[in-house]
Write a protein that binds this DNA or RNA. Structure first.
Lengths: 219, 219
DNA sequence: CAGTTCCGATACGCATCCGTTGCGTATATC
DNA sequence: GATATACGCAACGGATGCGTATCGGAACTG
């Protein structure tokens, strides 16, 4: 589509070149407005205004609103944080606190809430976000849990998918779904709880006596 | 406002009375459309059409769209399910599976996602939903955990708020945020994990040796 | 300088939706 | 029957937003 893609070596295309600064400004403005107003609330006029650019300049690059929104989300990916070395338990705390900080930054929580609400209108967008951003980080946690199995910290037949969700979901709830304060100690509490549960041989042996005591107390 | 509120005993207000059937049809249609299209997508014309009613009939009862939406949500409350008797662990499984079934019914998940996305536009609506629907059920779970403390199943200084969220959040994630299959066994797994973590005296004694073993393995 | 493309500004056509109004008809009380 | 209200239908004014079109000027190539 773009003439720039064709001319690799020789002469550039004739005419005034497109301003790359305008392109960056448009994407930045779109990202902001996306978090503030959501997909439905975002308007091309507002994007152009905040970017300090005429509406025609936006439409010259993205022929429709949905294309702009998709490119805006794609630029979000960011590099995966490197996995630090150390005991699995401490690394888990560290990574989860990192996620928490990310969700609490700026308007990130609002942006994710907006995307959730619009997931049914634009399934492609939500899938893209999940594929590019969520899945890799989830994969990373899961590999960490595998290390935990090797270290004898987690029983080998544990449901790792479920464990990852038990680690992430409470933090997601307190940062994105229903923002509320959350301390490092609480994150550690979550990690220790999940690890304690994953170390348990098969549950019934542990829960049995307690419920028996309770039954005796109730009866 | 309504003349019906004034005339308690004697004569009814003059003129043709309002159709209560139309009122029910409007609320039902609004609820459906709210789940399908969200607050922003819901239009008064669509509500009237689906209810089989003229638009004026809607505006005669609710003077604006937001008022209709609020009344639509309020009718959702439904009675709190009675707390069954039995061992805390089993009752927890039962209640959580009940919540899971509720979220998986019909378009409930979509409705909640829509509300989440619109929470920033209409903070009053989200608060109302939380106050009327979420909080009572959360309170119920918390009281159940108090019973668990009395039974010696949970250590007395446990963070009950956090525990409730650790129980609910993973289910919320798999039913509302990112719908995926979930079995009764997985719900039980969550309950047992959280209970195992809450029984632990103070964590460090349990995690210590495992990380030590891991450190020996890594070094 | 000639040719080409980008840019900003403005205006437009088209569609959607909110909330209102007018009118003829239906259903109630006195 | 007189009166008062609700109902369905249709149309309207006002606002918003998408995507397009036009125009003068700016930037870059040969």
């Amino acid at each position: 589509m773009t003439p720039r893609a064709a001319g690799g070596l020789s002469s550039r295309a004739p005419g005034r070149p497109r301003s790359e600064q305008a392109e960056r400004a448009i994407l930045a403005a779109a990202l902001e407005l996306l978090g503030e107003l959501g997909i439905a609330g975002l308007t091309m006029e507002a994007v152009a205004a905040r970017a300090g650019v005429a509406k025609t300049t936006v439409y010259r690059r993205w022929s429709a609103k949905e294309e702009l929104v998709l490119d805006t989300l794609v630029q979000l990916k960011g590099p995966l944080p490197p996995v630090p070395d150390g005991p699995v338990r401490d690394v888990l705390c560290q990574l989860l606190n990192q996620m928490r900080a990310g969700w609490q930054r700026d308007g990130t929580a609002g942006l994710i809430r907006r995307l959730l609400g619009a997931a049914d209108d634009h399934p492609g967008l939500a899938d893209e976000y999940w594929r590019r951003i969520v899945s890799p980080r989830r994969q990373l946690l899961q590999e960490l849990l595998v290390r935990g199995i090797a270290a004898g910290l987690i029983r080998p037949d544990a449901d790792l998918d479920l464990m990852v969700e038990m680690l992430v979901a409470p933090i997601l709830l307190r940062t994105v779904i229903r923002p509320a304060p959350m301390t490092d100690e609480q994150v550690a509490e979550i990690v220790d709880t999940v690890l304690a549960g994953a170390a348990r041989p098969l549950a019934l042996g542990v829960v049995g006596p307690a419920t028996a005591a309770e039954a005796a107390l109730a009866g």
